[in-house]
Design a protein around this nucleic acid. Structure first.
Length: 894
RNA sequence: GGGCAAUUAGCUCAGUCGGCUAGAGCGCCGCGUUCACAUCGCGGAGGUCGCUGGUUCAAGUCCAGCAUUGCCCACCA
């Protein structure tokens, strides 16, 4: 604890997040709290272990959505925790240039001005796009601030800034030299709207209804969903074992098309399913991935009939040329009908690939593009998980990672859009490539897939290929936290690039994974488990939530809404609950601050006069500390020397279960501390003998709880710390509270709970007998072990609203209500109360006890149970039985 | 077609080496008493833990099968 203090301020009655959050964030940032401590104290670089997280860079085009909020919440909690634990902590922010998304936005802006990007020209367009990105990136950055993210803005990166440009160029060149990048003509996914090739991952397959047309096709009848491609057919394929068509195989047949009669070769190929349709399939090698393969195997011609713009080419013939592919389909069908070549139409469901950005139907086509060879480097990436250097949380996602690496196809990295990293290579007329300008070679007009730069992010942000001080200290990163929906497009590729570029871990000198753990969060859905969508109108704006309830409330809600890796059902009611929780913390603090004076600490406690409540709450606080640490604990982060984990943490970590931590905190703060200890403290503070201890404990528990809460609820805890308690050193850089092992006394907790049960029991009896809230009743507690209950007498009197309490062996006779609490019995005389149910009540209590005794006796009578169950379980059962029998005896006596 | 999840109170979810009477919040019903908080306090009702078998002294928890829902992967025209 720091001795430095400002004058505490009087806290208002209700916590108003909006009144503090902006200023608190600004103060944190200004103080340098977000930066690694070693930035100002370079000596610490050697002494302290680094803890590094890179923020998955949001698109510059984006605005904050709840998915971002979840990500920021989890990462910030981890970062704040490790900062408080004494790691040299770096959380590095950045944004992604999102090539296609940005290009689309800028095109839109141009269109609104009545301009077209092609008439503007490439150079001007790129300038404009860069400016647009620059103008917009602050939006998502400001929103990241609003979430309270303790990122180091001084290291803010952008996938297209100078340093990252160097990383990208260098990466391309190295891969090219190692023959891991090549250029070639293959079947690719083409978006006719954006006029660029896309990678497999940028194509979204959607199930939709379509028509399967059965056509007369020379001597065959065959089925197709894409009749417009007929003019591009150069073959018909059948299965080699299909007897129906055997006689045609190898022949060339005449087929009537809309643009004349074509000679079509009939081939036999295993790829044809004789069961589907008619068992014969038309082959369009230029425009279908399967047909492309069949065409290669049988040397069929490739005929381009649909152009890059999605319109039919000259080769499609006069009647179709220039038409959009879907118009061409209609026209072809009309023509087929007219010629009586259409046998039937069947409505089917089939999957159609669409562009993930613009939703246009993908047109597969043959095209010359650049690719990264994946198979070789995949082995290294698989080794990362094989030998346990890379772990997934939850572990099941490791399977997804493996699955993808085991069935890998080469990655198409060239794009025909204008905005992006220029592809740093030259090509000549013969298709030869070069990294440098040579006579006859021209600079490639292509740009690189956005994900190419993202794949370098864990080390490009650290200055790679330069061996900067940051690289040496902060690489590899610790945790990569992100949504499970981008394992493939991003996580896998970062690992592949680390392997391909042989980015060495400075600490081990070998190629290690770029992070030791991948922590995956789920997708945020609405309260009923549906995905957010514009058409449902169920979207949630995190900024609106922040405005209404405060950032801490949103964060606490997101952190506690689900188990790790599971989807989050977002329910605004829970944000209300979290807001109320923040307010509860606020008011607890107001009470403690007003009630307690002085700076005495735990060392000043007088052990002899500690009450059951005092010991109990300290024990529960100790357990809470353990529980929260266990939830945050990541064994891998401790791998390097410097910070020793506590033994208990390591025993059974619940890696990254922040929901568990949040629930434990909520339970402790609201129930144990506010509802019980605080109420007991109100009594103890009036007693000269217990007042001093109580004050010390109130303050100690509050201050400790503020620390433990801080990673999840940074704002309210900091405000209380600063304004309420008047602390000068901010909480954000405070040290994680120590635990006092000597407080680990479970019986203290049990006694606390036992007294709680006594009070609850009396209250229940009061309620059952309709005792007016304001009235007082008397109570007897029949017990063999009265000392610590007697000591709590004043508290019981107040909380159960008693006019008299007796503890001892002799309960009153007659008209009473009795209930068992452990082996004790609580007896409340009913004289003067609405007591019609007294006898029934006692009877029910006795009956319940008897049932319990029966059950326990039955279990102990079971030989196999006694022999097989572990000793402590059996002993526990025996103790329970003894307790129940004692309780029954007392009930029957009353 | 292959794989992965989920299924516990009206709703949203906890329940981590199998072991007392399965918990929380919200919602619902009843009552509100002293100066932290009505964004509050106290009490209560509410569950055949999806179904069927199996393992075990003991199953919400482990195993098998089934059902329903969701997600991912896969070239079926």
């Amino acid at each position: 604890m720091s001795p430095k203090k400002d004058q505490p301020k009087e806290l208002p009655k209700t916590y108003d997040p909006a009144a503090y959050e902006g200023a608190v964030y600004a103060a944190w940032e200004k103080s340098g709290a977000f930066k690694p401590v070693s930035d100002t104290k370079p000596k610490l670089r050697k002494e302290r272990k680094a803890y590094t997280i890179i923020l998955p860079p949001p698109n510059v085009t984006g605005v904050l959505h709840v998915g971002h909020s979840l990500m920021i919440t989890l990462e910030d909690a981890l970062v704040r925790y490790h900062r408080m634990k004494g790691f040299d902590t770096l959380w590095l922010p950045g944004t992604d240039h999102a090539a296609i998304a940005t290009e689309i936005k800028v095109e839109q802006a141009l269109r609104e001005e009545g301009k077209d990007k092609r008439e503007l020209g490439k150079a001007a367009f790129v300038r404009r796009a860069k400016q647009w990105a620059k103008d917009h990136k602050h939006i998502i950055e400001d929103q990241t601030r609003a979430m309270g993210a303790s990122v180091d803005w001084s290291r803010n990166a952008f996938t297209m800034d100078k340093a990252r440009e160097q990383s990208v160029q260098e990466a391309f060149k190295r891969l090219y030299k190692q023959d891991l990048i090549y250029r070639g003509s293959y079947m690719v996914n083409w978006c006719p709207h954006d006029r660029t090739v896309l990678s497999e991952e940028q194509v979204v397959h959607k199930e939709q209804e379509g028509v399967l047309y059965y056509l007369k096709y020379g001597p065959f009848t065959l089925a197709t969903t894409r009749p417009e491609t007929k003019v591009g057919d150069t073959g018909v394929a059948v299965h080699p074992k299909d007897k129906r068509y055997a006689k045609w195989v190898g022949q060339t047949i005449d087929v009537e098309m809309i643009n004349g009669t074509h000679q079509i070769k009939v081939v036999a190929d295993e790829a044809v399913d004789p069961e589907f349709g008619t068992g014969a399939v038309k082959v369009t090698p230029f425009h279908d991935p399967n047909d492309y393969e069949i065409g290669l195997r049988h040397q069929l011609d490739q005929l381009e009939v649909i152009g890059e713009d999605g319109r039919m080419t000259e080769a499609a013939g006069k009647r179709l040329a220039g038409l959009d592919r879907f118009e061409a389909r209609k026209k072809t069908v009309d023509w087929l009908k007219q010629k009586k070549l259409l046998v039937k139409e069947e409505v089917i469901k089939h999957s159609v690939g669409r562009c993930e950005r613009c939703d246009a139907v993908i047109e597969p086509r043959v095209s010359t593009q650049w690719f990264v060879r994946m198979t070789k480097i995949a082995k290294t990436a698989l080794a990362f998980v094989d030998d346990g250097r890379l772990k997934f949380a939850p572990a099941r996602f490791e399977k997804t990672y493996r699955m993808w690496l085991e069935q890998l196809h080469d990655w198409c990295i060239s794009r025909q859009i204008w905005f992006g990293h220029p592809l740093p290579a030259y090509v000549n007329g013969k298709g030869e490539t070069s990294l440098t300008a040579k006579p006859g070679f021209k600079k490639s007009p292509d740009t690189l897939d956005t994900w190419f730069s993202s794949a370098l992010w864990p080390f490009s942000t650290m200055g790679w290929p330069k061996q900067t001080a940051d690289f040496k200290h902060f690489f590899p990163n610790d945790v990569l936290e992100t949504g499970y929906d981008i394992i493939l497009s991003w996580v896998v590729r970062m690992c592949l690039m680390t392997a391909a570029l042989e980015v060495k871990n400075p600490a081990t000198g070998r190629v290690d994974p770029p992070f030791h753990t991948v922590y995956l969060n789920g997708i945020v859905r609405d309260g009923r488990g549906r995905k957010f969508s514009k058409s449902l109108g169920n979207g949630v704006d995190p900024l609106e939530m922040i405005g209404k309830y405060g950032t801490d409330a949103l964060r606490f809600t997101l952190a506690t809404s689900n188990a790790p890796g599971a989807d989050v059902n977002f329910d605004e009611q829970r944000v209300v609950k979290s807001r109320n929780f923040a307010n509860k913390i606020w008011n607890i603090s107001r009470f403690v601050i007003n009630a307690v004076e002085g700076e005495a600490g735990l060392d000043d406690l007088q052990a002899e006069t500690l009450t059951t409540f005092d010991r109990g709450i300290l024990y529960k606080l100790y357990r809470l500390n353990q529980e929260v640490e266990r939830s945050f604990h990541d064994p891998a982060a401790y791998d390097k020397p410097g910070i020793e984990p506590r033994p208990a943490e390591v025993r059974r970590p619940r890696t990254y279960d922040l929901a568990h931590a949040g629930n434990a905190l909520y339970q402790f703060v609201w129930s144990d501390f506010a509802d019980w200890y605080l109420e007991a403290a109100k009594v103890q503070l009036r007693n000269a003998e217990t007042a001093r201890n109580t004050g010390i404990i109130l303050k100690h528990v509050l201050e400790t709880a503020l620390h433990l809460l801080h990673p999840l609820m940074p704002f309210v805890t900091e405000v209380i710390w600063r304004d309420g308690l008047g602390r000068k050193d901010p909480l954000i850089t405070g040290a994680w509270p120590a635990v006092h092992e000597d407080l680990d006394q479970p019986e203290d907790g049990e006694r606390f709970d036992r007294i709680r049960e006594v009070i609850e029991t009396i209250r229940r009896i009061r309620a059952e007998h309709k005792t007016p809230a304001a009235s007082f009743v008397q109570a007897y507690i029949v017990t063999d072990e009265p000392a610590w209950i007697v000591e709590a007498g004043d508290v019981i009197n107040k909380l159960a609203r008693l006019s008299m309490l007796r503890v001892g062996q002799h309960p009153p006779r007659g008209d009473v209500a009795s209930a068992a609490v452990g082996d004790a019995t609580v007896v409340v005389p009913l004289a003067g109360l609405a007591s019609d149910t007294a006898a029934g009540h006692l009877q029910r209590e006795i009956e319940a006890k008897r049932m319990e005794i029966e059950r326990l006796k039955g279990r102990l009578a079971n030989k196999e149970y006694v022999e097989n169950a572990p000793e402590h379980v059996v002993a526990e059962t025996k103790a329970k039985l003894a307790e129940a029998e004692a309780a029954l005896a007392k009930l029957e006596a009353s």
